[in-house]
């Protein structure tokens, strides 16, 4: 290990070819600015943890790939809204994706329709890419060992990487909701929203419910992110980890569709993904939110522990 390299001066992820931009120096500035002033070891650890988090997020959201994925997600509601706007014949109720027929009456439904469309494939796809890239991406670029030279340690790196993936989940769902609401408001009238129960709520409350849905879907994706993190510790090939994570999400949904496996369904991390619609009932049915959070928490614990075991005992060669 080259001892003359100061860990705090190196921002390993910055070395990625696609990311070399003048402003990249800023992230390492933040980090070195935080560390020196701290006296006790404890506060050094905490400060460097936050600095690591900040630099991880900076790298993640400065990446062109991340922006491309968020743009693709934002394009889904736009596509739906434009298609509905341009067709002359009204959408018949019960045809196409759920809620599609409501779009012409109320633009706020664009976001919800887009969410239903995105949840089975597009959203797991982007999250698979981000979560699968966490450890394997650094290993593939040969930067993992430089990251581990820092006093941060492997556990902290794992936590920071997972937190980064979780933040991306939130960003992805918020992208769909915000872009859906924006294009819906631009192309269609906005007014009171009809809930599944037939009751109507005002615009203010419907915005609140949209944000709740974003929260629900974010929580829904935490289990998949944990699985992606674990798979990412298994390999040095980021593309393999991404593909495997996406395959896992597809397999889980296929199993969920087989009636012969009834007993297994409540244990599948994708089982409650579409139950965000429970937030559109009057009164809100919170039980699925709770069950879903509990299930995702279980997946997070199990696969987090597995990732920890694998990553701590792993021989880092790259």
């Amino acid at each position: 290990m080259p001892s003359d390299i100061q860990p705090s001066d190196i921002q390993p992820s910055d070395i990625q070819p696609s990311d070399i931009q003048p402003s990249d120096t800023r992230s390492s500035d933040t980090r070195s600015g935080n560390t020196p002033g701290a006296g006790p070891i404890e506060s050094v650890g905490r400060a460097s943890g936050w600095a690591l988090m900040v630099s991880e997020l900076t790298v993640l959201f400065r990446r062109r790939r991340t922006w491309a994925m968020l743009l693709a997600l934002a394009a889904v509601p736009v596509l739906i809204a434009v298609a509905v706007r341009l067709t002359s014949s009204p959408v018949a109720p019960g045809r196409g994706p759920p809620f599609l027929d409501r779009v012409t009456q109320n633009g706020l439904f664009v976001a919800i329709t887009a969410m239903v469309v995105c949840i089975p494939l597009f959203l797991p796809l982007t999250i698979g890419v981000v979560a699968g890239d966490t450890i394997a991406g650094e290993a593939g670029l040969g930067t993992l060992r430089y990251l581990l030279v820092a006093p941060a340690g492997r556990v902290r790196l794992l936590v920071v990487k997972y937190a980064g993936a979780a933040v991306f989940c939130l960003a992805a769902t918020l992208t769909i909701v915000v872009s859906g609401a924006a294009i819906g408001a631009a192309l269609f009238p906005v007014g009171p929203v009809t809930l599944l129960s037939g009751d109507t709520i005002g615009v203010g409350e419907s915005v609140l419910r949209s944000l709740l849905i974003a929260g629900y879907v974010t929580v829904s994706m935490l289990g998949l992110s944990a699985i992606g993190l674990f798979i990412s510790t298994l390999t040095d090939v980021p593309v393999g980890a991404m593909a495997a994570t996406i395959v896992v999400s597809v397999v889980s949904q296929v199993l969920d569709a087989l009636p012969q496996l009834d007993w297994l369904h409540p244990w599948l991390f994708s089982h409650y993904w579409l139950d965000f619609a429970d937030l559109l009932r009057q009164p809100i049915e919170w039980s699925s939110f709770g069950t879903n959070a509990l299930l995702q928490g279980g997946y997070l614990l199990v696969f987090g522990a597995l990732a920890y075991g694998r990553f701590v005992t792993k021989d880092i060669l790259s």
């Binding site: 109720p93 019960g94 759920p98 809620f99 027929d101 239903v116 599944l196 129960s197 037939g198 619609a277």
Partner: peptide, 22 residues
């Protein structure tokens, strides 16, 4: 899933509502 069927009864009215076909 993603839909709801409602039945509301009060003193004077009986309503059935199906969100799937509105």
């Amino acid at each position: 899933r993603l839909a709801e069927r409602d039945l509301v009864r009060n003193a004077t009215d009986l309503w059935m509502y199906n969100s799937k076909d509105n």
